[in-house]
């Protein structure tokens, strides 16, 4: 097994901290808000209001669920078009009231189902990139498990992308990559290595800003995440909306 594949395994582990845990620990006064206002409420996306150091923020997270039933309802954390539309609705609301947006991501990708196609999965993600990605409030994303493909990018198109030590961010799963490129999904470990999907590699490619140390103790991990978010928010709060957007544009223009 390659080093990259070990991180993939840890990112997918059942012992992984969850979005709900991160929210409960960092935002104890979180109030969940439901629905995309277009006919659906995808449970794979949680969103709502909270305060951080007495200032209002909007919090959005993917959710894989705990029980078997919950996991199936959430498509194991793969958002439907309604999930992306819910995140965009809440993000626009945040921008209206000048609230920073904090997003936690652990998803293998956007849900690839028939209904998702019929409801415009591509169009939903596209709207996030176009609109969410251009809202004039600070947007910080923490990838805490898997960051899979466009489904992750739709929630990571803002000012900062931070990753836990044992997390990945990639264009496709190593298995999918191996089956396309090597016609052999068992070569996933080899794929994981060449794809540069670990936090360390991604930082080298300037795709992410910071790696957040992860502990086996979830409370400690959440505390560290909180400290880093506060630091990053402080930096971003010093910028005018125009400066913020100019820097964000430059962030993606370099690739």
């Amino acid at each position: 097994m390659t080093k990259a594949m070990e991180i993939v395994k840890k990112a997918r582990s059942d012992d992984k901290i969850t979005g709900r845990e991160l929210i409960a620990q960092i935002f104890p006064d979180f109030i969940e808000l439901h629905g995309d206002r277009l006919g659906s409420d995808d449970p794979a996306i949680i969103g709502g209001l909270a305060t951080l150091n007495n200032k209002a923020v909007t919090v959005i997270s993917t959710d894989r669920g705990h029980s078997a039933q919950e996991r199936i309802a959430r498509h194991f954390g793969c958002p439907t078009p309604g999930g992306y539309r819910k995140s965009l609705r809440l993000a626009k609301q945040a921008a209206k009231f000048h609230r920073p947006i904090i997003i936690f991501v652990n998803t293998a990708g956007a849900y690839p189902g028939q209904e998702a196609e019929e409801q415009g999965q591509g169009a939903a993600i596209a709207q996030n990139l176009l609109q969410l990605g251009n809202l004039p409030v600070p947007i910080i994303t923490v990838i805490f498990g898997e960051g899979g493909s466009g489904g992750a990018l739709a929630l990571a198109c803002g000012d900062r992308v931070l990753m836990l030590t044992n997390s990945t961010y990639s264009v496709l799963s190593p298995e999918g990559f191996a089956s396309i490129m090597y016609r052999d999904s068992s070569k996933a470990a080899q794929a994981a290595e060449i794809m540069q999907i670990t936090p360390e590699s991604l930082k080298k490619y300037q795709v992410i800003e910071e790696i957040i140390p992860e502990s086996a103790n979830h409370n400690q991990t959440a505390e560290t995440v909180k400290t880093v978010i506060c630091q990053q928010l402080k930096e971003l709060a010093a910028l005018t909306p125009a400066e913020l957007l100019a820097k964000r544009k430059q962030r993606f223009r370099q690739y």
């Binding site: 990139l129 251009n134 466009g150 990559f177 396309i180 993606f252």
Partner: peptide, 23 residues
């Protein structure tokens, strides 16, 4: 879809282009 051989940098093109479209 994505250019597998260029990995995550292929993914980043989606946002780069979206921002140019937005402007």
């Amino acid at each position: 879809g994505a250019r597998m051989q260029e990995g995550i940098l292929s993914l980043m093109q989606m946002q780069k282009i979206s921002n140019a479209i937005y402007e």
